[in-house]
C-alpha cells in the first residue's frame, strides 16, 4: 500500500503519548518548531482528492471516520491543549505540513494561548409544543378566562372565542420560547469566556420529536465547568415541566473557538 499522504488530527502544545489502542494504529506525533502534530500516513487510494470526494458520499465511511477523528483528538485533549483540524484535512507531504506550521506559527501560538485551560461545551435546547400548549391551557389565567367565556357563550360567539384562545396560546408559546432560550443563553454566557451560536438543525436530522430552539457552543474555563453543570441542572429543573429539554454534551475539542480558516497556497 502506498502511504504517502498525511492526515492531520490536531496540534498539541506538549508531547503526546500515543497509546490509543489498535483502532488508532499508525498514529504518530511529528515535532515541528515546538508544535506536536498528531498525524497518520494514509493512502491515496482512500484519501486522494478524487477518492476523498467519493468517500464523502458514503455515509457509513463518514460515520466511522468522523467518530475516529473526534476520538483521537478527544483522547489527546485529556492530557494536553489541542488545536483540532477540520475532519478530513490531508497534507500532500511532510514538507507542506512543515511550511504551514512555519507560516502560521504566530497564529498557532495565539490560538493555543486563547484555548488553554478552557473547554468547549455544546448546548442544544429543544421544546415540545404539545406539552407547552397543555401547560399554557391549564395555567394561563387569560386562557382559563376565555375557556370560561366559551362555556357560557352561544355557538357563534364560542367559535370566535375558540379562535382567539388558539391565538393567545400561540402568542404565549412564542413568548415562553423566547424567554426560556434567552434566560438559558444569558445564564450560560455569564459562566463562559466565549459563545458561538450555531445553526438550528431540523427535526429530520435530529430525529427527535421536539423542535430545536437554540444551538450554542460555550467556551468555559475548566474551573467553572462545575458551575456550568450545576446551572444546567438548575435550568433543566426549572423548564423541563413546561416542555423544554436542555441537551448538553462535552467537553469537546475546541472546534468552535479556533480562528484559523485560510486558503493556503504553496507559492
Amino acid at each position: 500500500m502506498n502511504n504517502e499522504l498525511i492526515y492531520v488530527y490536531c496540534i498539541s502544545s506538549t508531547p503526546v503519548t500515543l497509546d490509543l489502542g489498535s483502532i488508532h494504529e499508525g498514529l504518530k506525533c511529528i515535532l515541528f518548531q515546538g508544535y506536536y502534530i498528531i498525524v497518520k500516513n494514509v493512502s491515496p487510494d482512500e484519501f486522494s482528492e478524487e477518492n476523498l470526494k467519493k468517500k464523502f458520499a458514503d455515509l457509513s465511511w463518514i460515520d466511522k471516520n468522523a467518530r475516529d477523528h473526534i476520538r483521537v483528538i478527544s483522547q489527546i485533549m485529556k492530557s494536553s491543549t489541542v488545536i483540532p483540524f477540520k475532519f478530513g484535512t490531508i497534507f500532500k507531504s511532510e514538507e507542506n505540513l512543515g511550511k504551514f506550521i512555519s507560516d502560521y506559527s504566530d497564529s498557532l501560538r495565539e490560538n493555543l494561548i486563547n484555548i488553554e485551560g478552557k473547554e468547549e461545551w455544546s448546548v442544544k435546547i429543544y421544546f415540545d409544543r404539545k406539552v407547552l400548549n397543555e401547560q399554557i391551557a391549564e395555567h394561563s389565567e387569560t386562557v382559563l378566562n376565555i375557556e370560561q367565556q366559551i362555556l357560557e357563550s352561544s355557538p357563534g360567539k364560542a367559535f370566535l372565542l375558540k379562535k382567539k384562545k388558539a391565538e393567545l396560546i400561540e402568542k404565549e408559546v412564542e413568548k415562553l420560547i423566547k424567554s426560556c432560550g434567552q434566560t438559558c443563553y444569558d445564564e450560560f454566557k455569564n459562566i463562559s469566556e466565549l459563545s458561538r451560536i450555531n445553526n438550528l438543525l431540523p427535526k429530520e436530522l435530529t430525529e427527535r420529536n421536539d423542535d430545536m430552539i437554540l444551538n450554542v457552543s460555550f467556551f468555559i474555563k475548566k474551573q467553572r465547568v462545575a458551575d456550568f453543570v450545576g446551572t444546567v441542572d438548575l435550568l433543566q429543573g426549572k423548564f423541563k415541566n413546561i416542555g423544554f429539554d436542555i441537551d448538553v454534551s462535552g467537553p469537546w475539542p475546541p472546534f468552535s473557538f479556533i480562528s484559523i480558516k485560510e486558503r493556503f497556497c504553496n507559492n
Binding site: 499522504l5 490536531c10 496540534i11 484519501f47 486522494s48 482528492e49 476523498l52 470526494k53 464523502f56 463518514i62 460515520d63 468522523a66 467518530r67 477523528h69 473526534i70 488545536i83 483540532p84 483540524f85 477540520k86 475532519f87 478530513g88 484535512t89 490531508i90 497534507f91 500532500k92 507542506n96 511550511k99 504551514f100 455544546s122 450555531n198 438543525l201 436530522l205 435530529t206 430525529e207 444551538n215 457552543s217 454534551s249 469537546w252 475539542p253 472546534f255 468552535s256 479556533i258 484559523i260 480558516k261 485560510e262 486558503r263 493556503f264 497556497c265 504553496n266
Partner: peptide, 23 residues
C-alpha cells in the same frame, strides 16, 4: 453522528488550497 458532524465539518483549523486535500 449528527452531533459530531455539527462540530467537525467546518470548524477547527479549516484549510483549503493547493498544499492540502480537503473536501
Amino acid at each position: 453522528i449528527l452531533e459530531i458532524l455539527d462540530r467537525v465539518l467546518n470548524k477547527g483549523v479549516v484549510l483549503t488550497g493547493d498544499i492540502v486535500i480537503s473536501v
